[in-house]
């Protein structure tokens, strides 16, 4: 299943929200008492006009629905931003936007 994401970029700032359970493999299900298998985003990239500005390795310690916001020097209106993500099960997602 594709990883769903939303992205906004303006005023030198990129904000990304992913929809993902972010399970670290240690949590026990309240009903069954069984450990919920690890399921988290492992890699993300953000490129502005084709140049990678963030290449992230992530662990299961990210909160559910991982959120990132960061500032990029020199980013301007009309620049193209592409975000990609991949989790530990091989599911992938990508989204692009134009800096407003």
């Amino acid at each position: 299943m594709a990883i769903a994401m939303r992205v906004r970029a303006d005023n030198g700032d990129v904000r990304i929200l992913m929809t993902h359970p972010s399970e670290n493999g240690l949590r026990k299900d309240a009903k069954s008492g069984q450990r919920v298998p690890a399921h988290f985003v492992k890699n993300m990239t953000v490129a502005v006009n084709g140049k990678t500005v963030l290449d992230g390795q992530l662990g299961g310690g990210m909160s559910k629905d991982p959120y990132h916001s960061f500032k990029v020097r020199g980013m301007k209106t009309g620049d193209k931003v592409i975000v990609t993500a991949e989790d530990n099960t091989g599911d992938k997602g990508s989204i692009e936007t134009t800096v407003s």
Binding site: N24, G59, G61, M62, S63, Y67, K71
Partner: peptide, 27 residues
């Protein structure tokens, strides 16, 4: 890092053109 987390390292970012601010949410 969350230093006393079961797995302390939460994220590692390689950055270019970074402008001094990064925000996220951790467990």
């Amino acid at each position: 890092l969350g230093e006393k987390n079961p797995f302390p390292l939460v994220a590692l970012y390689t950055l270019s053109d970074f402008d001094g601010f990064l925000s996220t949410r951790i467990k």
